[in-house]
Design a protein around this nucleic acid. Structure first.
Lengths: 202, 202
DNA sequence: GAGAATATAATACATATGTATCATGATCAA
DNA sequence: TTGATCATGATACATATGTATTATATTCTC
């Protein structure tokens, strides 16, 4: 009956269970047993219960696959999805299901509220740290406060700009001296407010 | 024996199961039964199996809580998690479980590969569109190619910089003229490569 | 080295949960 | 209307899975 160094096996058990839970696939006691080569389910359970005592796991008693990451340990936070839209159609951006290019995960507490994602084209907002190719997560809303980063439809094209007011008129300001502001004498439809920027790096 | 309109109940069953799965908490057949008020587990299973036939769910036969979202279906794409680390300890950043401040969702195809997240401090990388407060998603790796955005430990502090080589020596370059490059005569430990940048706006 | 704490084992049992079989009402299509 | 399809139900069974009891070996602590 070989016996590992104190705590080492338990750490490995925890990491295994944590990874399974993060993957949305809660393991059984016997799966833990098998993975670590224990001859009895009890040894797996022994470690699992120790981890519960240490508050590194929580347990739903009597339920199958009942071990979870504790709520304060946070990874239990559920996830939502926002559609990544390719072409944005005027009027109903988030309903152009045909042009969904994929889905991006967003924290659930922000999801469900009409979020969608767009890929940024052009360098007009580099001054705000928004580069071409970046993904912006947008919450659909028809208006926004001055100073907000917004997505608007200008001549049928979706664009990210900063919202300003001037003489009671709406303006869309780039953050790059090489570009000119867009004034409301042109057709502008506000799609929503940028709530997040994401960039995939090399 | 009342009977709902065609397909309507099935849609609701799907949404319930999907939400449970996205939350990392796979339901049992009997839990579905209870939620929808069926008098027998079979009715729940009837719908679940229909959903499997429609490819909206997949099933691990004979396993408890075995229904899953299929891998190909768009919003069904599984999600992974990267721990948001507060304080980064030298040597083993992703194992400093104690300092996990939360978890951020990442696409599953990129997860599992030793990802972690850090919050950016300082303006040394504004030239690369990385602002203070931004979240960087990092893949742990001991080396990186010149030109890559990396996270390194400098004097015990985690910092984001661009990796350069000069006269065979490693240098960490800021992208802001107000900051100076860091040369390898100081103690530098490479933690990993930045694979994504995220910013929450307003 | 001795006692305590820890880790593993053999075995058994209770319950949670997936699955099947037959029957019946409801809805739909022709 | 009438047969076909769909949806629900009652009941039962098989297995997956959590849990307990007792014992033994290993490691740790003093």
């Amino acid at each position: 009956m070989s016996q590992a160094r104190a705590g080492e096996t338990r750490d490995r058990v925890f990491r295994f269970v944590r990874d399974r839970l993060l993957a949305g696939d809660p393991p059984t006691v016997r799966e833990v047993q098998q993975v670590f080569g224990f001859r009895t389910p009890h040894t797996a359970r022994y470690h699992l219960e120790k981890l519960v005592a240490e508050r590194k796991l929580s347990a739903a008693r009597g339920k199958a696959r009942g071990y979870r990451l504790p709520i304060d340990g946070a990874p239990a936070a559920p996830v939502g999805w926002a559609p990544l839209l390719g072409r944005v159609e005027a009027g109903r951006p988030a309903e152009a299901i045909e042009d969904v290019e994929g889905y991006v995960p967003v924290p659930a507490d922000r999801a469900g509220a009409g979020l969608f994602a767009l890929r940024v084209q052009g360098r007009s907002m580099v001054g705000a740290g928004i580069l071409p190719g970046d993904l912006v997560i947008v919450r659909r809303q028809p208006t926004a406060d001055p100073g907000a980063l917004v997505v608007a439809l200008v001549d049928g094209e979706a664009t990210v700009k900063r919202l300003r007011r001037r003489d009671g008129r709406v303006e869309l300001h780039p953050e790059n001296p090489e570009f000119a502001p867009i004034r409301s004498d042109r057709e502008i439809a506000l799609l929503g407010k940028v709530v997040e920027v994401r960039r995939t790096v090399g």
